[in-house]
C-alpha cells in the first residue's frame, strides 16, 4: 500500500509536555516492557537491510494485561517498506502473511505496535502509526518503538524509546499525530537469563564470540564474582571504620539485612544435614559412574561377539 503524503502534514516530533486543549485518550499510567529478543531481532533486521535503505521497520507482537495498562512486547518480525522524500509504502500483504504465520506458532501474541530504527520521528512515522493503529484491536493503541542505530545521541548508546500516539488538530487526519513517550523496561524470564549472560560474556571479546561454559566453569565464575563483591564490601566497611568515608545509613541497613539473611542453624543439626546430603550426592554420583562403566563394558563386549 502506498500512503501519499499530504502537503499539509503537521508534524510534531517530541512534545515535552501534554499540550492543553485536547484529550489524551489513555490517561491511565501505561507501561511497556520489551523482551531482549526483540531488541536483538531489530538489530539483525537493520544489519540485513537493503542497500541505500536508511532505516527499517517491522511489527511488534506481544501480550497485554487485562486492563491494557501494561504491554509486554515479546516478539517482532520485519516488514519491508519503501521510503522516499515524498512517499512511503509499507508492504501490507507481507505484514499480514507474516502475522498469520506467527499466529500458528503462538496464538497468544497479538499485534501491539511497530518498530523503526533511527532516533527522529518524521511525518512518515505518523502515517505508519495510523496504519498500525488500525491493525491493533481498538480500543488499544499501537506502540511505536524506536531504536537509535545511528548512535547520534549524546550518550552514544542504542537508545530505546517507546511512544503512543494521540490525534491532533481540529479534524482528525492520519498524518497528524502526536507521539507521547511512555516508560519502557527490558524484561526477561529466568530461562532467558542464562542465554543473555552467555551473550554478555562475549561483549568484551575482540572477535565477539564465546563458547559455552561447563557447569563447573560457570560456578567458578560466580564464586569469583561473589568474592569480588565481598571484598568491595569489606573495603568499604574498613574505610568507614577508619573514618575516611562518611557512614551511609542506607548502605548500613542493606548490609544488616544481608547479614541477617544467613540462616542460623544449630551446629549439630547442620552437621547432620550436611553429611546426609553429601552422602546422598556421593552415592548418586557413584551409582551413575558404575552404570556408565557397565555400559562401557557392554559396548566393548558387543563388538567382540
Amino acid at each position: 500500500m502506498s500512503i501519499d503524503a499530504a502537503t499539509s502534514a503537521l508534524h510534531l516530533s517530541f512534545p515535552p509536555t501534554t499540550a492543553t486543549g485536547f484529550v489524551v485518550p489513555q490517561s491511565r499510567s501505561f507501561t511497556v516492557s520489551v523482551n531482549p529478543v526483540v531488541l536483538f531481532s531489530v538489530l539483525d533486521h537493520y544489519l540485513r537491510r537493503q542497500e541505500k535503505q536508511h532505516r527499517v521497520i517491522g511489527t511488534l507482537l506481544g501480550v497485554r494485561s487485562e486492563d491494557g495498562s501494561e504491554v509486554e512486547v515479546r516478539n517482532c518480525f520485519p516488514v519491508s517498506h519503501d521510503e522516499t522524500d515524498n512517499q512511503v509504502a509499507v508492504d501490507m500483504e507481507y505484514h499480514r502473511n507474516m502475522f498469520e504465520l506467527h499466529k500458528k506458532v503462538n496464538a497468544k501474541e497479538v499485534i501491539v505496535g511497530w518498530y523503526a530504527t533511527g532516533s527522529n520521528l518524521n511525518q512518515w512515522n505518523a502515517l505508519i502509526q495510523d496504519f498500525y493503529s488500525r491493525e491493533v484491536m481498538p480500543p488499544f493503541q499501537a506502540i511505536h518503538l524506536t531504536m537509535d542505530t545511528d548512535l547520534k545521541n549524546d550518550d552514544k548508546l542504542l537508545g530505546v524509546k517507546t511512544y503512543v500516539s494521540a490525534p491532533i488538530g481540529i479534524s482528525a487526519k492520519p498524518e497528524n499525530c502526536l507521539f507521547l513517550p511512555v516508560p519502557c523496561d527490558v524484561k526477561y524470564f529466568d530461562a532467558e537469563r542464562s542465554g543473555l549472560d552467555l551473550l554478555a560474556s562475549a561483549k568484551n571479546d575482540t572477535d565477539r564470540s564465546t563458547s559455552l561454559f561447563s557447569d563447573m566453569d560457570n560456578l567458578e565464575k560466580t564464586i569469583k564474582a561473589v568474592f569480588e563483591m565481598l571484598e568491595r564490601v569489606t573495603d568499604y566497611v574498613n574505610k568507614v571504620l577508619d573514618g575516611s568515608i562518611p557512614a551511609d545509613n542506607t548502605i548500613g541497613r542493606f548490609l544488616m539485612d544481608t547479614i541477617s539473611v544467613v540462616p542460623k542453624i544449630d551446629k549439630v543439626e547442620f552437621e547432620k544435614m550436611f553429611n546426609g546430603h553429601l552422602q546422598d550426592l556421593l552415592m548418586v554420583s557413584y551409582l551413575a559412574n558404575m552404570t556408565r562403566t557397565q555400559l562401557a563394558i557392554a559396548e566393548r563386549l558387543q563388538l567382540l561377539v
Binding site: 531488541l39 544489519l47 548508546l157 542504542l158 537508545g159 530505546v160 554478555a200 562475549a202 565477539r208 563458547s211
Partner: peptide, 27 residues
Amino acid sequence: ITVKNSHLMTALLHSLDDYEHIIPKTT
C-alpha cells in the same frame, strides 16, 4: 558450539550495561 554477536549486538550489550541511559526512567 560457539556464539558470535554482530557488532551492533555488542553495542547493544554495552548499552544494556548503561541501563539508566538507554531507557530514561521517569516514573
